[in-house]
Simulated scan of single mutants.
Amino acid sequence: MAEVHVGVSGWSYDGWRGDFYPDDLPRRRWLAYVAERLTSVELNGSFYSLQRPTTYQRIADDTPDGFPVAVKGGRFITHLRRLGDVGQGLANFFASGVLLLGDGLGPLLWQLPGDFSFDDERVRSFLERLPRDHHAAARLAGRHDDKVPDDRAVTSSRTGAVIRHALEPRHPSFGEPEAVALLREQGVALVASDSPGAWPCFDEDTADFRYVRLHGHTELYASGYSSRSLDTWARKLRAWREAGQDAYVYFDNDARGRAPHDAVALIERLGQASASVS
């Protein structure tokens, strides 16, 4: 049965203390607290730099078995290399410890810069390089270089589970038929990126799952979502679920601490239960 997973993009926000997080909750318990109340989480620190295996192991330890953790691909690949000549970058990314999440590894998110317009050859080459299961990712990780030292590299996996990929472009050209057809051919989800006029919000079905990022209702990264807007998203998510598609939804409106509260409100609208709500 298809499932909807709802969470937040990141969780280490000091401004959430005393609001979403109790004042006396140690920082080391924040992720576990999130995992008790939401049904997924998106790791975005991996976008800025290669994480260490200890980071991924700690995430695995602090979340329930099967709790999906989406991981954002590195900006070295998407923004600096702009998807070109990325074989080594991908090897290092997967060797950095991603595979330690095991069956808890959710989709991999690849976000493109706003001035990156669709280029069939470049995008196709990148998508074809992406590993589609843990064993393929482990083989790719084995080709890491010294940016991930041997004593820190993770090049094996205990599961052969499928790895899903989602692409978040921010240029309207990715809504053209050629771009949509390529993503559909590759089985890569075109992210529905909701932002207050900053970027296009695509609504194309290109994979066996959906991926949604909610960046703010009226003010980018800051404003909360109205009851009416949450109702609209809940209807859309229920329709996808009933059609047999899993969906992953992450609130990124964290600047004023609205993200976790909006996520809880959406979970309630979907009639889902988080692990434990007290």
Rank of each mutant, 00 (worst) to 15 (best):
Y48N: 09
A247S: 15
R158A: 13
D23H: 12
P22W: 12
Y21H: 04
V69L: 03
W233V: 00
A259P: 06
D208N: 08
A141D: 05
L214S: 01
S276R: 15
A265Y: 11
L109I: 11
L50H: 12
A141G: 11
A234P: 11
D231E: 14
D150L: 13
A35Q: 05
S49P: 12
W199A: 02
Y33N: 01
Y48R: 08
A273Y: 12
R143V: 09
S195C: 09
T63F: 03
L38R: 04
L167R: 00
V277D: 09
E176C: 07
D62F: 11
S46L: 02
R27P: 04
W240A: 07
P196F: 03
L214W: 05
S96R: 04
S173V: 09
R27I: 08
A32C: 11
Y56L: 07
R37C: 05
A198Q: 14
G187V: 11
G224M: 01
R37V: 06
D119A: 08
P64E: 10
T63V: 09
A35H: 03
L140Q: 07
E3N: 14
T55E: 05
I59T: 01
Y21A: 07
D24F: 07
S274L: 07
W199C: 02
E268T: 15
V8T: 15
P53D: 10
R213H: 10
F174K: 00
G87W: 07
D146Y: 08
Y211N: 00
I77Q: 02
A95V: 11
Q111S: 12
L100D: 02
Y225T: 02
R17P: 01
G73T: 10
A137H: 10
Q111W: 11
H165R: 00
